[in-house]
């Protein structure tokens, strides 16, 4: 995974609470077999009119936000379905950072698996950023992960909180699976001592079960 350290980019405001992952990537795009190409369809139903004509009323299509890479959002961002297609879309569109007052748990988790930083600020700090974004065309923020700061070029600076272990994952671009596999002996040990709880009987009507491991 691509490591994350600091990022400066233009802000796009999404002024809506409880944005769910169905809106980020609607169901018709869940039949893909790869993780690629979801940027084009991010926020599909809001973003496009029939015939895939860009909807001029949706913020993503405002010319002034073209090239934005910081997504400014409201509370409980990413609620609903666990689909990782949502952060794949966010990333593929070009966002590296999300700034919001709160996130739904699964989406928050999924961001870290994809090198996206979901930064959390207080409600009134978020409000301030919405106002500044609205007032200044091309408003941009610099997000510094090691220092846990978000700053603009006018001297505004907010600190944000992040669990140290999450921070490390992003900074190093760690491969989770590889890290867990370093503890393979522990897993094997656990399996040995808990073998009984895994007791299972063979059922009915299944395909492709091999007894051997």
């Amino acid at each position: 995974m691509q490591p994350f350290s600091a990022h400066t980019g233009m802000v796009m405001p999404l002024d809506r609470v409880n944005v769910d992952t169905d809106q980020m990537v609607p169901k018709q795009f869940l039949k893909a077999l790869t993780r690629e190409g979801f940027g084009r369809i991010l926020f599909y139903d809001w973003r496009y009119l029939p015939g895939e004509k860009p909807n001029p009323e949706f913020v993503l299509n405002f010319p002034r936000y073209k090239g934005a890479s910081v997504l400014l959002a409201r509370a409980n961002f990413g609620c609903g379905s666990s689909r990782e297609h949502a952060p794949w879309g966010v990333k593929d569109y070009g966002f590296r950072v999300i700034v919001a007052p709160s996130y739904a748990d699964i989406f928050y988790n999924n961001c870290f698996k994809n090198g996206i930083l979901p930064a959390t600020l207080l409600e009134d700090q978020i409000e301030e950023l919405f106002q500044r974004t609205d007032k200044e065309e091309g408003y941009s923020l610099t997000v510094n992960l090691p220092n846990q700061t978000i700053a603009d070029k006018h001297g505004l600076m907010f600190k944000f909180e992040i669990a140290p272990s999450r921070k490390e994952v992003l900074l190093k671009g760690l491969d989770d699976i590889g890290t867990t596999l370093l503890h393979e002996p522990d897993i094997t040990e656990y399996e040995k001592s808990h073998a009984a709880s895994a007791t299972m009987y063979d059922a009915v009507d299944v395909k492709y079960y091999s007894n051997g491991r």
């Binding site: 893909a32 059922a203 299944v206 492709y208």
Partner: peptide
């Protein structure tokens, strides 16, 4: 008729066959 769905079913079937994972496919009575 939905080709994307069909490809997903085929992928699941292939993945289960190769890895020995139990699969209740769309024709299973379970």
């Amino acid at each position: 008729l939905d080709n994307d769905a069909k490809l997903q079913f085929e992928a699941l079937e292939k993945n289960c066959r190769e890895s020995g994972v139990r699969l209740f496919d769309m024709n299973s009575k379970n």
